[in-house]
Amino acid sequence: MHWTNVLTAAIVPLTGVRAAMLRFSCSQLVVDRLDPLVNPGQVPSPHLHQIVGGNSFNVTMDPNVNDISESSTCTSCQFTEDFSNYWTAVLFFKARNGTYKRVNTIGNGLGYSASNGGQTVYYISNGPVTAFKPGFRMVVGNPAFRTQAQARTNPALQFTCLASPMTRSGYRYDFPTDTCAGGIMVTVRFPTCWDGKNTDSPDHQSHVAYPVNRNCPSTHPIKIPEVFYETYWDTRPFNNKALWPADGSQPFVWSFGDKTGYGNHGDYIFGWKGDALQRAMDANCNSDLIQDRLNCPTLKSQSIVNANKCSIQRKVKEDLDGWLEELPGGGME
């Protein structure tokens, strides 16, 4: 993928250009050791994920046989025509005695605190874009990364130590090294350019690219909406430094065994119904919470309370709530 000038090109609306921005809450659907994109058919998958979106999320999600916009019966997202699935790894706290405790997600403090965890999802455009096609999927980031130099090749994946729910500064590529009064926010931004042909690729990344100097490269000429996750991890219960490692080092680790944070990554499977996403982008919707409803008249929405009701049962039966001797799957640091 191409990474040059990612943040300036993909995030800041261009002056004079009508832009769309859908921002909405997706409550936690399930926390499970499944990954139908990278490890289809494998039960359990190598590491734990937290998943939001449509309830047809499963061990295998073959786009040739499973249209998730048709097979899902509910979504944990506020827009009821969005049955996409969005997922990330899971954060754990490693105590001084060597045991692990899963960190919960909480609703984004920017109006979504009623959410049963999960994450806030954005779809952003700067000018006309082409919505994703049925079967589209992609991954960003690399769980094998362990150095800052590697992480900087994925400049759109970052951490923020929240002083309050409103904190939007102090971005970094690794885990914060001190306590965070409001928890840790993890952001994941996906590429905004598509090759126009493939809805997937063997590495789940090569069919998409980031813009170069605000323009899509010739290899990936089609502009697509920017998909962006904000996940609030509630690290506040672990702010007692008496529980932290004796050397004072930061105590958090991803579910795949990464204690640096550089392996941050995210997965996406498109599942909007019909032309709903294209309609919203064409209408330049700029949605925000308005009395628990979303300001995009062309789309149907539900309250966060109703979104909280959409969940599925874990398929992998293992202890995810107590103090654990090892990470689920035995992920090594």
Rank of each mutant, 00 (worst) to 15 (best):
S115I: 04
G117N: 06
W323A: 11
S113A: 13
P176K: 06
F175L: 09
N97C: 09
L299E: 10
L327G: 10
D258V: 03
A246Q: 13
D174N: 13
V30P: 07
G127V: 05
I290E: 13
Q278H: 07
R152V: 03
H207R: 01
N240T: 04
W194D: 09
D203E: 02
N239K: 07
G274H: 00
V59L: 10
N286M: 12
Q150H: 11
G141D: 08
A131W: 02
K317Q: 04
V38F: 07
T75L: 06
L37M: 12
R23N: 15
L324F: 01
V139D: 12
R23I: 15
A95G: 09
D35S: 03
V12C: 06
F132C: 03
I68N: 00
H220G: 11
T260E: 04
T298M: 03
S113M: 08
C310W: 02
A19Y: 00
D67Q: 08
S113R: 13
N308W: 00
L29C: 07
A163F: 05
I222W: 00
G118N: 04
S169C: 04
L37A: 12
P211S: 13
E226V: 13
K259P: 14
T177S: 12
V30L: 08
N97W: 01
G263P: 04
P63I: 00
G109V: 03
N97K: 07
D203M: 02
P128S: 10
T187D: 10
F228Y: 15
G16M: 10
E226H: 14
R214C: 12
N154Y: 11
N85G: 04
K94F: 02
R96N: 08
V38W: 13
H47W: 15
K94V: 00
D200R: 12
R137N: 01
F270S: 12
N308D: 08
R236I: 15
L14H: 14
C310Y: 11
W3Q: 14
Q158G: 02
V227G: 08
F24Y: 13
T153M: 08
S169I: 07
F270Q: 07
D234E: 02
R102L: 06
D178L: 15
I290A: 08
V188M: 02
N142R: 15
A181C: 01
Y100C: 11
W254V: 05
R146C: 10
T187G: 15
S27N: 11
R168W: 02
C26E: 02
N85M: 06
G271N: 12
P155M: 11
E81D: 14
F228E: 07
A283Y: 09
G117K: 11
D195G: 09
T298S: 11
S303N: 08
R96S: 13
G183L: 11
I184W: 05
H2K: 01
P143R: 01
S84A: 03
F24E: 04
G53P: 05
G41D: 06
P328W: 03
W272A: 10
W233E: 05
T192S: 01
V227A: 14
